[in-house]
């Protein structure tokens, strides 16, 4: 502890300079938005129903997408980290596909599978009358598709770093695999899960390409903030800046609040 404190004081220039440059690179575009924001008309622009609808929809869908990512992503990460099976490397690579796939292509791919005439979607439509395109559920699916890799990678990393012997200790105490998973493994990797969920939520909140391609754009139903921003950019760049700032402000506030609550406890 003492050593760490002593070392913490003076960062070497070799690290400090690129660190600050990197920070500037990330923050300056934000400054650009702030400088160009039409502050005088900000209030009236924000109170428009369409803005509030889009914001509400964004928050709801991003949160639902995060929940879906947790439900499916955590078990998937566990499989990748704990269950040795043939082709695990391939599966791991496949999991990252949505990361490298341009989101628009991801949206088309989703249409081909879950669309009204998709491989699975066609059957869902015929058997249950369920269709996803042009629905809020479709937005959630698109966001889940794009955001899930962030959760899986983050949780898998945490699982690999976790000390397996705790699980052995739990086993000797009579815990079955499920008990071990939810009472020992999961709490141990909770910081990793939280970090993954936050990344996931942020990615879902900013999702544009897959959403508009798969779910379309209809105010109140599928028009999330990024879609509203994009369309505002067509005619009214000032409004686009306002919307972007709203999205950023909400994201920063939520993430900061979560960070205080979750990240610091462990």
């Amino acid at each position: 502890m003492k050593d760490a404190d002593r070392l913490a004081g003076r960062p070497p220039l070799v690290l400090l300079v690129p660190a600050l440059a990197g920070l500037a690179f990330l923050v300056l575009p934000l400054a650009g938005l702030l400088v160009r924001a039409p502050w005088s008309t900000l209030g009236t622009r924000l109170m428009q129903d369409q803005v509030l609808d889009a914001l509400r929809l964004s928050l709801v869908t991003a949160t639902l997408a995060t929940v879906l990512c947790l439900l499916f992503g955590v078990p998937l990460a566990w499989m990748l980290a704990r269950v040795p099976f043939r082709g695990v490397r391939l599966v791991r690579a496949l999991v990252t596909v949505p990361l490298v796939l341009p989101p628009v292509v991801g949206g088309v791919a989703l249409l081909l599978v879950l669309g009204r005439r998709g491989l699975v979607g066609g059957w869902l439509d015929e058997a249950f009358g369920i269709t996803f395109p042009f629905t809020t559920a479709g937005v959630v699916l698109a966001e889940t598709f794009v955001a899930m890799p962030f959760l899986v990678i983050s949780v898998e990393g945490a699982l690999r770093a976790a000390d397996l012997r705790y699980e052995e200790a739990a086993a000797t105490l009579g815990a079955g695999r499920w008990t071990i998973f939810h009472r020992v493994t999961l709490p141990l990797v909770a910081p990793g899960v939280a970090a993954g969920a936050v990344l996931c939520w942020a990615r879902a909140l900013g999702e544009f390409g897959a959403t508009i391609t798969f779910a379309g754009n209809f105010p109140g139903r599928t028009q999330t903030m990024p879609l509203a921003v994009y369309l505002a950019l067509e005619t009214d760049p000032q409004a686009a800046i306002v919307l972007s700032l709203v999205l950023l402000a909400v994201a920063v506030i939520v993430l900061a609040a979560l960070r205080d609550r979750w990240m610091t406890t462990s």
């Binding site: 000390d163 012997r165 705790y166 052995e168 200790a169 739990a170 020992v184 709490p187 141990l188 909770a190 462990s266």
Partner: peptide, 8 residues
């Protein structure tokens, strides 16, 4: 090293 569950 005892392996007490740190979260409990």
């Amino acid at each position: 090293d005892y392996l007490l569950f740190p979260h409990l």
